[in-house]
């Protein structure tokens, strides 16, 4: 299945958000996610199903003003 992660197309085998994150190398606990522009709480990642073309945003802490 092809999805878009942080603006880049990715081919993934899983259709669950938590597994896709592992597949894409996200093992850092300090991340937050959004699916198609809507926040997905950490606890809901295991039950969040993805479909072809979904847009995932994965963000982490950074310096800010």
């Amino acid at each position: 299945m092809r999805i878009i992660v942080n603006g880049e197309e990715r081919e993934v085998t899983s259709d669950l958000l938590d597994q896709v994150l592992v597949e894409c190398g996200y093992e850092n606990p300090s991340i937050a996610t959004a699916l198609n522009g809507t926040f997905v709480h950490r606890e809901l990642r295991t039950e969040t199903k993805l479909t072809e073309g979904d847009r995932i945003e994965v963000v982490a802490p950074i310096e800010g003003g």
Partner: peptide, 22 residues
Amino acid sequence: VTVSLRRESGGSNAGQDFWNLI
């Protein structure tokens, strides 16, 4: 102090490192 969020690449620890510093 103020902080923010930005996209992070898979496999990167940059965000975690910054957060640990703070």
